[in-house]
């Protein structure tokens, strides 16, 4: 039983890491209906920029602030020069634009900062802490705390600020939002800038865990089943989806893996997502679209 709890808790905590990436997707999708495939590349860009600045002897806090500014600027530039010219294009066109964008950002990150692997030490120990019979990594706990803080901050932002209200209006009905005088491009620019900030947080935590290297951009692939489960436009869904995917894939690897030759972690999340698409296409918390027949 204690082993099962170990596996379950480990899965839930690793799911939090997926949620961090999924949050960036949700921010963009919620406001513009665009599935931003470049979010993984933004995670890589943020982590690589931060670690390269620290390696150039900039203090931690300064590096963080400079990277934050760069990510905000990057988000703004993407909106201004990629998405704005594509307003009113189909969803698939916008998706393809972000797909292309991901290659450009990955290439630019490597062009600017090189292709070497960098270590990143955030000063958070990654050693086990005992809670009864269950061992939990201190790093995972801090990551979970950061994710919870981000969700709380984003929820407050959406519910209590004028900009947040504008976000919700745009998410609800873009034409109506324009009709009441909201500047769509302004809202989108802020959403992309926020996605850049989320990418930085995810990049730092994933970078500390994996090392800062190209593989960071591939974590985006695990965020997709999280979004299918939680819903593409729900912040709470990103968290719940992440927890579910983490718990399912770890349990499957341990309890089903030995019977099917192992390696279930690579595909089980997508099988679960496929099942969800069949029975609940909008995900657990996603907004269901009602179409008049």
């Amino acid at each position: 039983m204690s082993f099962f709890v170990d596996v379950l808790v480990g899965g839930l905590l690793s799911g939090v890491m997926y949620s961090l990436v999924a949050l960036g997707f949700v921010l963009i999708y919620k406001t513009s209906g665009v599935l931003n495939f470049a979010q993984g590349a933004m995670v890589l860009f943020a982590a690589l920029t931060f670690v390269s600045l620290t390696e150039h002897k900039l203090p931690f806090a300064v590096s963080l602030l400079v990277t934050l500014a760069i990510m905000v600027a990057l988000g703004w530039l993407i909106e201004r020069f990629v998405l704005k010219p594509l307003v009113n294009q189909s969803s698939i066109t916008l998706f393809m634009a972000t797909l292309g964008l991901s290659y450009v950002i990955e290439g630019a990150a490597q062009l600017l900062w090189g292709t070497e692997v960098h270590g990143l030490d955030l000063g958070i120990p990654d050693t086990p802490m005992q809670f009864g019979s269950v061992a939990i990594s201190e790093f995972d706990l801090v990551a979970a705390l950061i994710a919870a803080t981000m969700v709380a901050a984003l929820t407050l932002f959406f519910r209590t600020t004028r900009t947040g209200l504008a976000f919700r209006a745009v998410a609800d009905d873009q034409l109506a939002a324009i009709a009441v005088g909201l500047r769509l491009s302004h809202v989108w620019a802020i959403a992309w800038a926020l996605a850049g900030v989320v990418a930085l947080v995810a990049g730092l935590l994933w970078g500390a865990r994996l090392g800062v290297q190209f593989s960071l951009s591939t974590v985006v692939l695990k965020a997709l089943p999280v979004l299918v489960l939680g819903g593409f436009d729900s912040i709470a869904g990103a968290i719940v989806g992440g927890l579910l995917i983490g718990a399912i894939e770890k349990s499957a690897e341990v309890y089903i893996g030995p019977f099917v030759g192992g390696g279930t972690e690579g595909w089980i999340a997508y099988v679960v997502a496929l099942g969800f698409l069949l029975v609940r296409p909008a995900g657990l918390f996603g907004q269901r679209e009602l179409v008049r027949a």
Partner: peptide, 20 residues
């Protein structure tokens, strides 16, 4: 023999098995 799916950026379940 325990497999780690490509690219290998999540290994908690494998290492829990190793621990056991």
């Amino acid at each position: 023999e325990i497999e780690v799916p490509h690219p290998g950026n999540q290994q908690q379940s494998q290492w829990l098995q190793i621990q056991r």
